[in-house]
Amino acid sequence: MDTLPLPDDGTAAAPPTPDELRELYSLMAAVRRLDASAVAWQRQGVIPGYAPELGQEAAQVGSGYAVDTSRDFVFPTYREMGVARAMGVDMVEYMSTHKATWHGGLHDPKTSRLAPIQAVVAGSVLHAVGWAHGQTLDGSDAVAMTYLGDGASSQGDVHEAMNFAAVMKAPVVFFVQNNGWAISVPTERQVAGGSVAARGAGYGIPALQVDGNDVLAVLEATRRAFAHCRSGKGPVIIEAMTYRRGPHSTSDDPGRYRSLDEERDGAGEDPLRRFRQQLLSAGLADEAFFARAEASAAAEAEMVREGLEALGPRPGSEMFDLVFQETTPALESQSASWREESEHV
């Protein structure tokens, strides 16, 4: 489905150049390698937990690549490493969140334009709408993009966020990664009607459902959505249909709720293999290019691992410093108790 009007003022984005196409593939290759490495790091004790995104590289890189980091702002969940990488966020700083540092990561949201990882299911959509509404009050043409899954779409926060955004014409893109599973529950058992994008009609929000395994289709859809929001016409819903090829998290066992045959049948064509074939068919890349992309991805993953292992523990006192803008008596009391028990002050 596609209810998003086409631009009629000549503002449609130009198709990606050959260099951009090759960059998109390199980004996807880097994300694939880093994602697999992060799972291994969790097993090795380098990080305590991680939410894999195998199979969702096209949805994440294609959407993240469309962001204008000079003005827009992205509000992720806990599974948007590929978005962060496409936006140019330092991966050691981003992955430090998964190392469980006290303050939730080292990357600076203000400069990177990526909000901290949100572990509360659907929590990021409310933050995005609030920020986007602030841009309309300031007269800015900046756009917020918030990520959620098909499972999160069943939360009440999503209804509140979409309703408010539609009423106030907030410039926010709701990017739904429908990966087929709400942890162990398939989409058809928890999304009434089978489509999150279809709900847009109830809010008066234009929406489109896109092949989430096609990086170019995702990029085009996201650019269209941003142009719509930037022109003052309000929010857009994008539902990228993809598939979570691995577990929900490193503590999940997908074998308890689906078979390997079901996983293979449901996953469809691999997004990297698909885009690789497109580039080969168009004569825009050769085997030497793909070899370089893989080598670069492997080197980057090793660099990130070294950076993570070099990180020391954060001062425990930070958990009290970064709660409120102005401290409270209760927080001061807790801080004093912690210092007495932990630092013997």
Rank of each mutant, 00 (worst) to 15 (best):
L137Y: 09
D9S: 11
A165S: 13
Q277S: 05
S259H: 03
V345C: 11
Q278M: 11
P329G: 05
I183W: 10
F290W: 12
A144G: 07
V89R: 00
L311P: 00
L322F: 15
G180Y: 08
G88A: 12
R199V: 07
C229R: 04
Y78T: 07
R244D: 04
G307H: 03
A86N: 09
P171W: 01
G193W: 10
T17G: 09
A40F: 11
E53M: 15
S281Y: 13
P315G: 00
F290E: 01
A310M: 10
G194S: 02
A14R: 02
S335T: 10
A298D: 12
L272F: 07
F174L: 09
T97P: 03
E269R: 15
S281R: 13
Q190Y: 06
L106D: 12
S281Q: 13
E188Q: 11
S259I: 05
I237N: 01
P116H: 12
A115S: 14
A100T: 13
N163I: 07
N213S: 14
A293Q: 04
G316H: 04
P7S: 04
S37I: 02
R189V: 13
A128K: 00
P116Y: 10
T77K: 13
P109V: 02
H159T: 11
P313E: 10
E340P: 04
V176K: 06
Q325A: 15
D211H: 05
L6H: 04
P271Q: 13
S184K: 02
S124P: 01
R244S: 06
